[in-house]
């Protein structure tokens, strides 16, 4: 057991390192038999070196789909990226040839999934699967691959890594499997890791271990981290900046402190007011009324208006753009000033 005195949160780093990723006006839709599902409806964000961007949203907000689009792992059909740009170090991934894109995927941008048990292939040993990364991308020999795999497993703090290289995924606990996934993602020294609900399936003490590991690795390598989650606590813990998503759109974005201390969008405000806190007892929770909309049937105007306490006539018809609230901070609410003034 270690009592990890947390490193003093780095003085606001956003924008200091190299710009790694710039997503602008990304749209993704799924064409199903039951109609078109508008999973992502124009989201934009940037990610720099050493930066952690949290994409915060509930199920059906499009947060995972947007990450899959960046990775280029959306099944087409039924999924189509219909609009937008995804620039990695200035180059648009969407207009790249598939072969070039494959080189970026895995090598420069890697992904960690929520469910490590299904993301790992049950019939190969974990060492084999990590070594595979080297064989495919670097043409390493089997032996070198295994050696590297053991090294990586050690780096993600899997105890007695050398002995466990030949073990199969089901022989690991949930937390250890997630470490194996992280090892695979790290294998080729990527610039960016996208972690899609990496700890949702894990217990809270294991979650702490994994988040701890991810921040340590980030400090070591300087990579950018995109963390997709619904957990406001995790975001407060690790993120530098936040995109709050609702119905496939970014409704608010900005530095994590600003958003947590004074939200500028009724949805983020509602989220904060609806969760119970470990350090507070009593008081009524103030839930957001209603339920998130189906992406196949997004309300017109502001998608949040049916649930919004601030909603007026204009909200039912005009979709709010992202208004600049402060430098590097936007809110997609017609009445953001009111929300901001109301405090929370």
């Amino acid at each position: 057991m270690t009592t990890a005195a947390r490193p003093e949160a780095m003085p606001a780093t956003p924008g200091t390192g190299d710009l790694l990723l710039e997503v602008s006006d990304l749209h993704v839709e799924f064409r199903t038999r039951r109609g078109v599902v508008n999973a992502v409806n124009g989201i934009s964000y940037t990610l720099h070196e050493r930066e952690t961007l949290a994409i915060l949203g509930e199920s059906g907000s499009g947060k995972s789909v947007s990450a899959q689009a960046v990775m280029g792992i959306i099944d087409t059909p039924p999924g189509y990226v219909t609009q937008g740009e995804i620039r990695y170090r200035g180059e648009d991934l969407l207009t790249m040839a598939e072969s070039e894109r494959r080189a970026v995927r895995g090598q420069q941008i890697a992904m960690i999934f929520q469910d490590a048990l299904t993301a790992l292939n049950p019939v190969y040993s974990v060492g084999w699967q990590i070594a595979e990364m080297y064989r495919v991308h670097r043409g390493s020999s089997r032996k070198v691959g295994y050696a590297k795999a053991a090294e990586l497993m050690d780096r993600v703090r899997i105890p007695s890594a050398k002995e466990r290289v030949k073990d199969y995924p089901h022989q690991f606990s949930g937390g250890m499997r997630q470490r194996v996934m992280i090892a695979m993602a790290l294998a080729l020294d990527p610039d960016i890791i996208i972690a899609d609900e990496p700890t949702t399936a894990l217990d809270v003490t294991v979650q702490a271990q994994i988040m701890d590991l991810l921040s340590t690795l980030q400090e070591e390598t300087g990579m950018g981290l995109i963390l997709i989650t619904h957990d406001l606590g995790v975001v407060a813990d690790v993120a530098d900046k936040v995109c709050v998503m609702y119905a496939g759109k970014v409704v608010e974005r900005g530095p994590v402190r600003d958003i947590y201390h004074n939200t500028a969008h009724p949805y983020s405000e509602g989220l904060m007011a609806s969760i119970p806190r470990l350090d507070q007892k009593g008081g009524q929770l103030h839930p957001i009324k209603g339920a998130p909309p189906s992406l196949a049937n997004i309300p017109p105007g502001c998608p949040f208006h049916p649930r919004c306490p601030y909603a007026r006539e204009v909200c039912t018809t005009d979709h709010p753009p992202l208004y600049d609230v402060a430098p590097r901070r936007q809110s997609a609410c017609h009445f953001w000033e009111e929300v901001l003034a109301g405090g929370n």
Partner: peptide, 21 residues
């Protein structure tokens, strides 16, 4: 692991506009 994000077709059933408060 409740918050498996949308593979959108899984969501399309839940189209109610009001969580009936």
């Amino acid at each position: 692991q409740p918050h498996r994000d949308a593979t959108p077709h899984a969501e399309s059933g839940l189209s109610e506009g009001a969580e009936s408060v």
